[in-house]
């Protein structure tokens, strides 16, 4: 038996001690990235959009650690400001669908019936298309732009979470604590939201880390293809696309933003692996 740790600080320390190494490293990297994004105006003297054609295509140096691009903009500055674009987009495109995906899947699993049948057919249709192709089709129909990427992702990304939540709900709803809740006269909404949801959220949270990486890649990828964020903005994928014309003369323009994507992706993957260990969940393979 253990008496609950006295202070919140003591409890936080105890929790931290139980984190696996991957989670600690990943969380630290992620925290640094977020801080760097927030502090971007103070970390660099340059503006991400102002052109300085005199200093165009300069290799990395003390004044421009990541060099400058073909318009003379400081690449490091643009990478730092890029955090402000890519990370929030990845976050919202992952966690907004996560919320209604889990809720819809859980309800379908609990109630069954026609709602479940309709939802599962929608899922089947969505899963039948390769994810990227589906998004590109939707964005191509709606037209490029941040709003339309959000719409496309919100239309499709919830399906994986609905699937996970539904499968877990089917297992959980046969358990005695659900029966006990019904025996106590609780209504179905209370049972689903208060009793079962906290028990089935883990797998979705672990999966969301994988999804987060994929979403950032998706945003960058769409921007690279010219379907996402339009050029002057310091978005990583856009920067890679812009830099590819100069790849032989000025490798840093596309390599270093690309590296930013890789580092962010690694941080999120480490957090995902660590969370999976900490929560005792199986890590779901990339899609």
């Amino acid at each position: 038996m253990s008496v609950a740790a006295a202070s919140p600080a003591g409890r936080a320390a105890a929790e931290l001690a139980r984190w696996p190494g991957a989670l600690k490293i990943g969380a630290a990297m992620l925290a640094l990235i977020v801080l760097a994004g927030l502090a971007a105006p103070w970390l660099t003297p340059y503006d991400p959009l102002t052109q300085d054609l005199v200093n165009a295509l300069q290799p990395p140096s003390a004044r421009h650690p990541f060099g400058t691009d073909n318009f003379g903009r400081d690449v490091l500055t643009r990478v730092l400001y890029g955090i402000r674009i890519d990370l929030p987009m990845g976050f919202f495109m992952t966690y907004v669908p996560l919320i209604y995906g889990i809720v819809l899947g859980a309800l379908a699993g609990y109630f069954g019936g026609w709602f479940d049948a309709v939802l599962m057919r929608i899922l089947d249709v969505t899963v039948a298309f390769p994810f990227l192709v589906l998004i590109i089709v939707i964005v191509a129909i709606l037209g490029p732009g941040v709003h339309n990427i959000y719409i496309a992702v919100f239309l499709t990304a919830w399906t994986m979470y609905a699937r996970l939540a539904r499968a877990e709900m089917l297992v959980e709803r046969g358990k005695d604590y659900v029966l006990a809740a019904r025996t106590l006269g609780f209504g179905p909404w209370r049972i689903v939201f208060r009793h079962v949801l906290p028990n089935i959220a883990n797998s979705s949270i672990v999966f969301s880390m994988t999804d987060f990486v994929l979403t950032i890649l998706l945003v960058s990828g769409l921007s690279f293809l010219g379907l996402g964020i339009a050029p002057p903005e310091p978005e990583w994928g856009t920067m890679v696309a812009e830099g590819r014309d100069f790849i032989f003369d000025a490798w840093w323009i596309c390599t270093l933003p690309g590296l930013a994507i890789v580092v962010t992706g690694s941080a999120l993957s480490l957090v995902g692996d660590g969370l999976a260990q900490r929560l005792g969940e199986r890590r779901h393979a990339l899609l």
Binding site: D176, T183, L184, G185, N199
Partner: peptide
């Protein structure tokens, strides 16, 4: 539902899963 929480109660078989973790 009203009766279940009040006048009628049930104790189930398996204590290991009868409470929400």
């Amino acid at each position: 539902r009203q009766l279940r929480g009040t006048a009628l109660a049930m104790i189930s078989q398996n204590p290991a899963t009868a409470l929400n973790p």
